[in-house]
């Protein structure tokens, strides 16, 4: 049905097969199929993956959010500080998510009401929120040690599968339901595809976009909570650059910067692919700069392919 997704899945699958075969042939040099490595992947993917789900929904409506990296860090500080003040952990979670939603709604309202590019509006938010984090943290790291039940639920393992990955898949399924099967999801696509037409058929494009902004922020906060629960600490500079990585994941997954296209499956595969490449390079003991080169190359090639395929399908 949608060309780019077929493409990216195929690429992912082929790469997967190559890695597995290579790891079976050279079990000592290339430990791809090992419990440690798989565990590592399953823990690494969810943070960026969850952020990308939110960023992707927003991208479908034709907007961006550069503040998700900052919101991600703020969420870690918010939950740790609120919990430290003696708030029950669940209340700290709800308060943190509420703060994130408020930031997202503000981003959305500023973008649609003043009709300015979201790129600029959220770049402002990125700096402001990062500043708030610095102020809250006074430059120090913060630690977060909730009770076993809470941390077990977020970071434990069920039947050998890492909990963060299960959360990621669960959230991806929810996002898929919203985006592909619901009325609101259809409005995301129509507004992103051609806003004027969407308005002409009676869709409140401002409302639709503000909701998408809120979801992007919400997803970033969920990732932030997941991350600090797993690691136990947060630093004020963490999460810088995640906003661009999330956009890269979405683009690799077949979403368009211009909006109106893409699938949730694409985002999931995009996130997995991103970490797989990182992981493979690490296993091969390649120097760090290779990673940037590879991710950069994949990004550009993915966009070229997707654009070309879409143009061909549109003929």
């Amino acid at each position: 049905m949608r060309q780019p997704i077929v493409n990216i899945c195929l690429f992912f699958f082929v790469l997967q097969v190559i890695c597995i075969v290579a790891s079976l042939l050279y079990p000592n040099d290339f430990r791809y199929v090992s419990e440690t490595n798989i565990g590592l992947l399953l823990r690494a993917i969810p943070v960026l993956g969850i952020i990308s789900l939110g960023v992707g929904v927003l991208m479908i409506t034709g907007e961006y959010d550069l503040s998700v990296g900052s919101v991600y860090t703020l969420a870690g500080y918010s939950i740790a500080l609120l919990f430290g003040m003696g708030l029950p952990v669940w209340l700290a979670v709800i308060a943190t998510l509420a703060i994130a939603i408020a930031i997202g709604v503000t981003n959305g309202l500023i973008t649609v009401k003043f009709a300015i590019p979201s790129f600029i509006a959220t770049m402002g938010a990125m700096l402001v929120v990062r500043g708030v984090v610095r102020w809250l943290s006074e430059g120090r790291t913060v630690s977060f040690k909730p009770d076993e039940t809470f941390s077990g639920l977020l970071t434990g393992a069920f039947y050998g599968i890492e909990a963060p990955f299960i959360w990621f898949i669960g959230l991806a399924l929810l996002t898929g339901l919203l985006v592909h099967k619901s009325k609101l999801g259809n409005h995301f696509y129509l507004v992103g595809g051609h806003e004027k037409t969407a308005i002409a058929v009676g869709i409140n494009s401002h409302r639709v976009k503000v909701i998408a902004f809120a979801l992007a922020s919400l997803a970033a906060a969920i990732a932030g909570i997941l991350s600090i629960t797993r690691v136990g600490t947060a630093t004020p500079a963490q999460g810088i650059g995640l906003e661009l990585k999330a956009i890269a994941v979405c683009v690799i997954g077949g979403l368009f910067l211009s909006g109106g296209r893409g699938t949730v499956l694409g985002i999931v595969v995009g996130a997995c692919l991103m970490y797989m490449v990182e992981d493979v390079l690490l296993l091969l003991r390649a120097p760090g700069f290779y990673l940037d080169v590879f991710v950069g190359a994949i990004l550009v090639v993915a966009v070229i392919l997707n654009t070309w395929l879409t143009r061909k399908a549109g003929k």
Binding site: T197, A198, G260
Partner: peptide, 10 residues
Amino acid sequence: YQDSALVGSA
């Protein structure tokens, strides 16, 4: 409309 009856990407 003259220019926008339908959304092309949908």
